[in-house]
Computed example of a mutant assay.
Amino acid sequence: MRVFRNSAAWILLQTSVIFGQLPYHALKLVISNYELMQDAFQKLCRAGYLEVVKAPGHKSFFATDAGFKTYCRMLHKEGRTPIRKKPAGTRNIQKAIRLSRINEARMFFAFLGHASYQTSLEIKREMEKKDARSSDSLKYSRFVGKIKRGKQVSLIYHFGNGNQRLNPNGESNASVWLREEDTIPCEKFILTETEKGLVDILEYSLWVRSKRSDALRHMQLNYYISYDDNAVLLPLTIGAGYFAQAFGRKDWPQMVRYLEDGARPADGIFLSTLDGRWMDVLVYLSKEHDPDVSVQLTIWDFQLPILTELHRRGLLPEGIPCDGYHISDYCNGIQPDLV
């Protein structure tokens, strides 16, 4: 198979070599034209340049030795220096799921220019240098990386297709070990492949809110939103990428407050997810409200599919007025307009 410069196949081959094993879903972040991306991916697989790992609910891929050689040959022709070593790939399903999610999160933040991003594998190696046993705290965690903004640290978790059962001890140990003396704990980011995965978390969180704490005491719980862990929820989409990019800006908190102040009505209930968190909406949905009291919801444009899915499942009443802002406007230095 001939791989041409600037072709979709060349873009996909470079991506697989640079970032390592990735879930198939990650290709949508690389090439927006799905048919073009799918055709290029199938050609690379038939040529033996990519190998696919499949299991129920999982599909990932990594560059083969032949694919790596083609990548090196192409770069040499362009007078560029390829990376020295082909990134590891695995056929073990559990390891493939974990590795591909770590790499997808790295790719997501790398495309946004987050130079401060560290993967959990890099952090694990640092921890092992200080204490051989310290990295055991990450063994059962869904933690995939962290970003810094000044002295604030945000931990990144990747939940794949949606809600997952967590090991509470593993998560607690990871949080303790990942706190640095000179940093301030900040928002936790929860990534899922699709908006549906986020709605799964929101629906499960509503169910948990309807139960007494003593009724949940002896249950193994999936992840749910709480006041103590009011995480930022992001689907792995280009639109959500703009949010992650904007989050890193110094004036981000002021911009969110400015937009919320402009959208807040004089009377009634005001709900906003402009900061990426959904606790206010969860609290509203978990209680009965007077139908005569007005409700106003303000969101970003990339969150619209989440509302659509909430409506489809009957979790969000129809007819709630909603203002949506274009997150890309803010990243491009433009005052965000209404959708």
Rank of each mutant, 00 (worst) to 15 (best):
S154H: 01
Q94M: 10
K250A: 12
T308H: 13
F41Y: 14
R5C: 09
S294A: 12
F109H: 11
A174V: 05
I238Q: 15
S32Y: 07
N163S: 13
V208C: 03
T308K: 15
N6V: 04
L166A: 15
S213V: 07
G160C: 04
A266P: 00
G262A: 05
K287T: 09
Y330W: 15
L307E: 00
H25L: 09
R312T: 15
H218M: 08
Q14N: 14
N33W: 11
T298L: 07
W278L: 04
L304T: 13
K151C: 04
N33H: 11
L198M: 10
F143I: 06
K139S: 15
S116Y: 06
T70G: 00
R73P: 02
F302I: 10
V281K: 05
E78V: 04
I156L: 14
A26I: 03
R257T: 11
H114T: 11
I156C: 11
A110R: 03
H311T: 11
W10P: 01
L138C: 04
I306N: 01
H218N: 15
G57F: 01
V144Y: 11
S120C: 14
P291T: 14
R149N: 06
R5H: 13
F143P: 00
I190Q: 02
N167Y: 08
N33I: 06
P305W: 13
Q296A: 12
A55N: 02
L304R: 14
L50T: 00
P235R: 08
I299W: 05
H326M: 13
R277Y: 02
D200A: 12
I83R: 01
V281A: 12
Y71A: 04
E35D: 09
G160I: 08
G319Y: 08
W177G: 15
P185R: 04
R313S: 08
I190P: 02
Y242E: 09
Q164L: 15
R106V: 01
L206F: 05
I83D: 07
A63H: 02
A246F: 03
G170I: 07
L315M: 03
N6M: 06
L178E: 00
L338E: 10
I11A: 01
Q42Y: 09
A174G: 12
Q220R: 12
M74I: 13
S135C: 04
R106I: 03
Q42K: 10
S137V: 14
E195M: 05
I97C: 10
C186Q: 13
E181Q: 08
N103Y: 10
V283A: 01
I299Y: 08
R217L: 08
R5I: 14
F108C: 00
M279F: 12
Y242S: 02
A8P: 03
S154T: 03
I225C: 04
V144G: 04
L166T: 14
G48W: 01
I18R: 14
Y224W: 06
E126I: 06
R264S: 05
P56H: 01
G197R: 02
D228E: 11
K54F: 13
L29C: 09
G197D: 09
G268T: 04
R2I: 03
E203F: 05
I269H: 00
K95H: 14
Q245T: 13
